[in-house]
Design a protein around this nucleic acid. Structure first.
Lengths: 196, 196
DNA sequence: CCAATAAAGTGACCATGGTCAATCATAAAA
DNA sequence: TTTTATGATTGACCATGGTCACTTTATTGG
């Protein structure tokens, strides 16, 4: 029999998460130290790892929530009807992901369910995106020769590529926004007749 | 004045690299410990960091060479004329990159010049690819409405996406090869007329 | 209410990447 | 050859994520 979680457990977990949020608010995601979190929460280090498999698990939780909120906002907007509008809608999410190199790396590392059996919070947001984008691409001026789901996967691929190049010294100059728009136009709205 | 490097320096560096190669050959990339490398090379730990900025720098060097070799082989083949052929040519490189999760993560992390000024060995291989692919896409049955360089960037984006999904529990079932081919067909050979 | 059992929490300890003041080796200058 | 300046090497030490045998606390059955 699995017992119901004790009140104490819930409270401890809440304190750990609150402590982490506080530190992030003050000094950013990359400044998070497990040691600092447990001190702030007033628990021992071992307790942290009784609640989270590892440091990344907590970060996944926090980033997952943030991303989910951004996707919510994104989906509340009117469905985009072309690549340019898709780009505009994607920008807030991209801006958050590239806000810190550490955040980008962590999200990338966990975007694909990270070789574990269960899907983590971040991988879940990527699946949500595919579902959500799929709705957009079922109508509008987007190409119709491939499935909305495939189009959505491509959008993810290009967004990732654009964000990666944002961190590249050689490409950092061109704004992410314009690079992404170029990609998405070519992917979502290929010309009907080929001619270069 | 910058003096010529001493013979001793060259020799130490050679020993460190040889030691790392040996450990990789025996137990794989993820098993590399700096401590083991310096013991095998017969030097102190500090010496390692006098030769390489950090552990990743050595890994970049080794992986960069490996990847360069694979690109060489790839470019020696006859230029592919369609998406399916591109996929076939890309597979050896992809197979190497996904051979270990650690390798994939590391390459991803450094594929975009990693926020540093100078371009690292891995980022360089990505630039090489764009150049190389560009030649392919200048002829053949590929779409011609966008530049070969842009097509090449897209191929990288899709290859990365396909490899990331390979590590995802939910998508691991579909072979990388077929997923990549689906992506590349849609990207490199969009239909002339839209119709789903 | 008490003993028994299971869950939660603890902190000393470990693994590993990375730092740096001190020491040693080499080659150019005297 | 001796001196000197620069480059190379050393290893004790640090930072930080993570482990685990043990203690404390809660729940449950009698």
């Amino acid at each position: 029999m699995t017992r119901a979680p004790q009140k104490r457990t819930v409270e401890t977990r809440r304190r750990l998460i609150a402590a982490a949020r506080q530190i992030i608010a003050r000094r950013g995601y990359s400044a998070i130290r497990v040691e600092d979190v447990v001190v702030e929460a007033g628990v021992a280090k071992g307790t942290f790892f009784a609640h989270f498999a590892d440091k990344d698990a907590l970060m996944e939780l926090l980033l997952g929530e943030e991303i989910d909120g951004l996707i919510d906002t994104m989906m509340r907007a009117r469905a985009p009807r072309n690549a340019a509008e898709v780009t505009v809608l994607l920008m807030p999410l991209c801006d958050f992901i590239i806000s810190e190199r550490y955040v980008f790396d962590l999200i990338l590392r966990h975007s694909g369910a990270a070789a574990r059996e269960e899907i983590g919070p971040i991988a879940r947001t990527f699946l949500r995106q595919v579902d959500a984008f799929g709705q957009w691409f079922a109508s509008g001026t987007f190409r119709r020769d491939i499935s909305p789901a495939l189009l959505a996967e491509g959008v993810q691929a290009f967004a990732t590529q654009a964000m990666a190049l944002h961190f590249c010294a050689l490409h950092g100059a061109q704004p992410l926004r314009s690079r992404l728009e170029t990609y998405l136009k070519a992917w979502l709205e290929p010309p009907h007749k080929s001619a270069r």
